[in-house]
Amino acid sequence: MQYRRKQDIHMSAVAINPLNRAVRFYEAPIGKKAVMAVTGVMLVGYVIGHLLGNLQIYSSDPQQINRYAAFLHNPSNALALWGVRLILLAAVVLHIVSSVQLWQQNREARPLRYYKKADVPTSYAARTMLWSGPIVAAFVIFHVLHLTTGSILPLHDIGPNMPDVRYNVVSGFQNYWVSGFYIFAMILLCMHLYHGLWSMFQSVGISHPRYTSKLKKGAAIVAILIAIGNCSIPIAVMAGLVTY
């Protein structure tokens, strides 16, 4: 039990170059968590943008959403589109890799589990990050296969680089399994975002006694709005409110 260690206790003035700083940053769990926060912000931004785009399906002009898709797929925008896609892909990869690394380290920090362990009720969303994360990831893959690559159901096109989004969405959501999975995934996304949105402030150190409860509420509202927006589409399709 006796302990005695030598270590340099003096403030060292060695200038650290940016590369060293980056390595040191990513090696530290706090750094990884910050990476998750920053990539999380990017992904949430994308989710919101994506949702706003999708909501155009409710436009009184049935072709509105297809025009929007055509705009995105216009070859003159290809560079930007792929740029954004690559950035998003990198964010997703970083988000997942750092979370897996943290998860692994944290699991090792308690080799012997408790015989009995209670959980604090308020932390429900936080504790579900572990499986809400992978399921949401699986959903994203499914979503891309479904509506981007057409590997699940055949996609209709109006013309070259002009997908018939309205048709693809409606025909997809008329399938109860597909809609069910969408809704389930969106509820998990909601929980994931609820914890993630608040958590990312915490991870980069934005927190103050006066604002914490507001931040938590704000995160909940944003997460729920996103879920409602996203779930409304399959529901509307199934209810026959959105048709082709």
């Binding site: 039990m1 006796q2 302990y3 005695r4 260690r5 030598k6 270590q7 206790i9």
Partner: peptide, 15 residues
Amino acid sequence: ERQIGAGAVEMYPRT
């Protein structure tokens, strides 16, 4: 603890 970290004190807890 600062001195323990610096190796100037040898600490024996539970002793």
